[in-house]
Write a protein that binds this DNA or RNA. Structure first.
Lengths: 253, 253
DNA sequence: ACGTATTTGTTCGTATGTATT
DNA sequence: CAATACATACGAACAAATACG
């Protein structure tokens, strides 16, 4: 089912028709290789302006179906997990919505043993785990340190990935590994360890958030993750004017 | 604070600068009559294209701060108190749901001057305020220190209330005083001051949550509140299995 | 390793449709 | 009905990041 032609007369806006048709094609598996058409291809095949294309694609992106970034072609999110908006972890996205771009820098990538992670993953202490530790940057400044432990059986293919602009779950799905679809998380205020504090560029007397997160897929734990978030520069802010939505925001004031 | 001029060079996209400035003006109460500038007025006053204006306003709209529809002018969302159950502050109730009983102990009740509270309440620094400081106990153990500042004009009748088993908002309503129906709150990790730390029975190296909260009624601030929550014994926990509910829970495990 | 082509992001301009006042 | 205001839609150009030869 390649592409439906759009009705120019009246029923729905063009962007809505385009969005609907793209949703249909996603469901039909038209892009199951993960390759989504480029903006230009869409303008050609549907005979609409790029503006209209972007309007439709933006909505698909916002719904968590796509991954878009400059230069890189648009990718399908083969898994539909990122939109668990309830989760505190997803609040990182709200930083990006302020126009600040996030990147990461790999601190550590290798095979380790970790008692705490093993406990949460439900394996013995001496089980080999993949550790991916990243420094998350927002607008070039340190925002958080993110450490993810995964069972090696699942995660071996991840050892050779460039993580600076790659999302963990997208890559997991890409390798055919199980992606978390349930779990829990908890938030604690802490004094960061000296090494972490230095890496985040924090002063000694400042506290931080510790966000711990267990991800399970169909009941079996697949990921234990801890995130140390700068508390001197970022806060969880919640407006209860309208939506009551929470955001992670830089402390401008 | 009319309108900041935007920096055309490079730090952030124009739409992000515009969004940030509009958020600031909303917070400052520039549009508290509910009247938001039209797209055209914004293009003029900020000297950007309508496309850029729409990009910024769309995000504010999506965040639930605005109400937009064709022909009708853009309105500020001044209501929406119903969903305030999302608020972090209300998570205190979840402690009680574990069977632990909450009480409070009045630490201070009187008339004070406070620069920070005055700032948030929008009055001059030397304005007399009512301060109600309470130690919140859960099952007989310290959980948090709660300080609420209210304009004396509103709060005078509260001076003679027994607070150990009384909720603040219920008593406000009882006296015919305005009860907050809008506002915002933010969560920061901190190192508690020594006095607070001792009162909460915390060790020196432990961090705490600082929950700050501004309550307004019909646009005018009526309450500034800070709550210091023990971080060594209580955490925000969120299950993203089914309910996605967040709770404040003792760190039993 | 470097330069070029590609792709998405940002920003401008303009015009028309449609609902509200 | 007329004016206003937001929604939709076209076109064009440059910037920034990436991918590829």
């Amino acid at each position: 089912m390649p592409a439906k032609s759009l009705d120019r007369s009246h029923p729905l806006p063009l962007w809505a028709q385009l969005e609907a048709d793209l949703r249909r094609r996603i469901d039909d598996g038209d892009f199951d290789d993960g390759l989504f058409p480029t903006d230009l291809e869409l303008t050609d095949s549907y005979s609409v302006s790029r503006h209209t294309v972007r309007d439709a694609v933006r909505r698909l992106n916002q719904a968590g179906l796509l991954t878009r970034s400059r230069g890189r072609m648009t990718q399908l999110n083969l898994q539909g997990f990122e939109q668990s908006l309830e989760s505190l972890y997803s609040l990182f996205q709200s930083v990006e919505s302020t126009g600040i771009e996030q990147t990461s820098e790999v601190l550590e990538l290798g095979v380790v043993n970790d008692a705490t992670a093993s406990m949460h993953l439900g394996v013995s202490e001496d089980t080999d785990l993949l550790l991916l530790a990243r420094l998350r940057l927002a607008g070039g400044e340190a925002l958080a340190i993110d450490r993810a432990w995964l069972p090696l059986a699942i995660a071996t293919p991840l050892l050779s990935v460039d993580w600076s602009h790659t999302a963990l779950y997208a890559e997991l799905a890409n390798c055919g590994s199980p992606v978390p679809n349930q779990g829990w998380e908890r938030l604690t205020p802490i004094l960061p360890k000296q090494a972490d504090r230095v890496m985040l560029g924090m002063k000694k007397s400042e506290a931080a958030f510790s966000l711990e997160r267990l991800g399970t897929c169909d009941g079996t734990p697949v990921e234990w993750r801890t995130t140390i978030i700068r508390g001197d520069r970022y806060r969880f802010v919640s407006d209860w004017t309208a939506t009551g939505r929470s955001e992670l925001r830089p402390t401008t004031t």
